[in-house]
Design a protein around this nucleic acid. Sequence first.
DNA 1: CTGAAAGCGCTTACAG
DNA 2: CTGAAAGCGCTTACAG
Lengths: 342, 342
Amino acid sequence: MKKLVIKDIARRAGVSESAVSKVINNYDDISEKTKEKIQKIIEKLNYRPSKSAQILRKGKTNTIAFMSGRIASHFTVEILSAIERNTFITGKYVHGIIPYSTNYEKEKMYEIFDKILYGRETDAVIALAMNPDLKIITKYKKAKVPLILIENDMKDAHSVNIDNHKAGFMAAEYLIKKGRKKIGLICGGLQEGTRFGYSYAAEQRKAGFEAALKKYGIKFDNRYLELCEHYTIEEGMELFENFIKKGIKLDAIFCASGDNTAVGVMDKAKKYGMKIPNDLAVVGFDDLMYAAFFNPPLTTIRQPIDKIGSAVLNTAIEAIDKKLKSFKHIIIEPELIIRSSA
Amino acid sequence: MKKLVIKDIARRAGVSESAVSKVINNYDDISEKTKEKIQKIIEKLNYRPSKSAQILRKGKTNTIAFMSGRIASHFTVEILSAIERNTFITGKYVHGIIPYSTNYEKEKMYEIFDKILYGRETDAVIALAMNPDLKIITKYKKAKVPLILIENDMKDAHSVNIDNHKAGFMAAEYLIKKGRKKIGLICGGLQEGTRFGYSYAAEQRKAGFEAALKKYGIKFDNRYLELCEHYTIEEGMELFENFIKKGIKLDAIFCASGDNTAVGVMDKAKKYGMKIPNDLAVVGFDDLMYAAFFNPPLTTIRQPIDKIGSAVLNTAIEAIDKKLKSFKHIIIEPELIIRSSA
DNA sequence: CTGAAAGCGCTTACAG
DNA sequence: CTGAAAGCGCTTACAG
């Protein structure tokens, strides 16, 4: 089966390739009659223009990169899916979102940033929980390739975040008002040198958490902090045991690192004979779709995923279309979802 | 910032574009000396070849399509992620897997199949739980674009499946041996006309389920069957209530439609005051990463996702490299994971 | 080992 | 309104 090219259509229709191209691209400097004739042949032969040829010629890929540590993370997926839903709504970049995962490796992250930029692979980049240095930001700015950060905020790039400070504050304040005194914090992205590096969002959550403690006159004991790296259920279990090993008896834990961690914490705490929330109150982060079905149902901070998704995609589209004079920094309100775990 | 092209590199190195191309493509008919000189300049200027130009010229996209109803489904994600992990292992098609979602619409599915094929968008297509007609299969075969089906099986396409018949059998037999007599079945993909259409995998699961019943002399009452369409937790709740409404009192339910359904069923059953597993045993399907943390922990059929992922990717790669003389039909063993819900 | 030339399949000014 | 021509940025025979 020979591949169909524009010349084949032109020949059969008895017109020029330009004419066919005009039909493909919906230009209007073409007569209705010719247009119809060409359309019929295109449909009959099921012709579609070669994507790569179009990209090469137009210099526009109609494609947006979505970078994350890995797509398998359920939070990542919910974000990606929200973006996808919004492509259907706007009709733009449908099937044009390409996932790139850094495998949580910093080097790979830089490689991908470079590859996309210099290889002109996509029209824009959406980066979830990525913490590139200023050099990357500047390169993208200079090359005028829009970069939209989620869970990060830098002056010379667009960004969409929830109010992480407020989220941390809300969680802590809720626990304090419930009478909890010894509140542990599990948080990722607080240390530069590690595999997972620094996260702006995490820092904000911690700051908000501490602000609430301070407001109510509670001093934050640094031993009440455990650092998260992998964001898995298993790590939540380990981290809970770290508190035990340190001989610390908490009456609450705020898992700023996400619901996965909270699931692990609850599971392990129960194995130590603790009742949740009586002996230990647990608050998660994200509100995964399963949060209401864990044992007990998880109290958590909801990230309004769909709002984030639409803000991100719209910003990307506007930036690609050069409708943005300056960098957008969108803040979305988090929400405390109260269930049974706290 | 002017975009760097091969000519720039050639000029700076004082060589021809061909020479640069040879370095990019790792050809060896070039002297070490020239090669090094060119490499240095490429590195210094951070040059990357234009992907679309390469694709256009080489006729190979280095890209594989991954089709599914939507990527947001957690099962889909786990499969996609397994494929992704395997791209890192093989070093092939890294960041070359492009998700296409049909939004569960049959028409969109056909549109995507055509678009990919005629627009030469990818080198191969992996289709999860898609049920295209013979015409599509034949078109792909003729065009020699490899098509790998997951959760479906057709003569003229590659496929990777678990043994769904056995899975259905295992689930039913386990419940019967536990003394359950009135076993309900929730299953998707059994009806052509609907939005979600027919699924080969679902049919097999049901057949296996019925085979076990038959073996133990239990007659399957058709009122014990509820049809699933959306595979969500909420639908699981509804479907459970359908049994109640029909006045049917079951002592077990096998959710062949997946763990999500099982979660919904358990939740609603508890609201009706039933104890799980005492009053109602529930078996799910998939073994999602959260399955052990629901209330109670879910007994379920595990799909060995990573095995599926590597089988799928390897088949795709082999097929693209034309190493396959005939269509591969890979069957992977399912596994019954016993926890507390049954 | 090196490079000039053709061409992949389109789109875009431009002339008519 | 129509079409001839140039060119997007590469790679691939091929001649030397």
